[in-house]
Design a binder for these strands. Structure first.
Lengths: 149, 149
DNA sequence: ATTAATGCAAAATCTTTGCACTTTC
DNA sequence: GAAAGTGCAAAGATTTTGCATTAAT
């Protein structure tokens, strides 16, 4: 029998890396944040809802409250570690990919798929209304299941 | 003194036009729907939240319930008379412009501005994942108030 | 020591729903 | 008169908040 691994693969090295990341973002390094950050960032880019992250945290043995998950997601977003994607009126999605890019979205499946920035060419943009600047341009390609004939 | 106008400028002619529109969309012609449709469609394109429409209805002397406003907006949307725009996790916006077009959005001001389809050039799109078709392409240009230096 | 983070439960928002009654077709 | 719409209030769902306790700087 191997011994239980309450902290999964959160090694000292990973902890240090994440602690640096949090520190650089101006966030205090706490155990819940470290472990949530680990869940979020360990495996490439992903899209996550608050509920999904809470479930995942619990499944991984992390006892964290709903409030902390919401606070953490919002703080990470404010700190630029996550991006919020608005595709569904019901839930918010958080994207660990903070580079400029776009999304496919399949309604009904609640599934987001990243599109690399250079895969879409937004050639021309209208002038912004006077007094306003472009913050960012979001392209969402809404998909339907194709019904073959 | 002129007599009160409980139905504002909802003339017989307008009622007939709207009744035809509802009928063509497969919706029964009822007084609340007719009056809400009038508020929505009388003055060019607009963006409206359920709350705003309810307030407007009450201000115009129409006694409708919140439930009816939500039902009506959802039915109009399902019937293709309105388009729902997802820009804010908090509230849903309904757009009376059902043609292909895009939006500016100013967060914090809860303001949507239409962009004509031909003012944006989405030159290249990635292939959709296998088994899925493009329903529609949505471009949202998020704006910030420009701070002059 | 100060300041911030966390948990818990309650509150706040927006939206939907159940059901009795009314209206449309 | 059958089917659908409406109002009312209650329920649902997601997200936020207040406050006491705990942890980080």
């Amino acid at each position: 029998m191997t011994s239980p691994q309450p902290r999964a693969d959160l090694t000292e090295e990973t902890r240090n890396r994440l602690a640096t990341k949090l520190g650089a973002a101006g966030l205090r390094v706490t155990e819940p944040r470290l472990r949530l950050a680990h869940l979020l960032f360990r495996h490439g880019n992903r899209h996550v809802t608050a509920e999904a992250l809470l479930d995942e945290a619990h499944a991984s043995g992390l006892r964290v409250s709903q409030a902390t998950v919401y606070n953490t997601l919002n703080q990470f977003q404010a700190a630029g570690l996550l991006r919020q994607v608005q595709v569904d009126q019901a839930r918010s999605y958080f994207d660990t990919n903070i580079d400029v890019h776009h999304h496919f979205y399949v309604e009904g499946e609640a599934r987001l798929i990243d599109i690399a920035a250079d895969a879409v060419d937004v050639a021309r943009l209208p002038d912004s209304p006077a007094g306003y600047d472009v913050d960012r341009v979001e392209v969402i390609i809404r998909l339907d299941k194709s019904d073959r004939s």
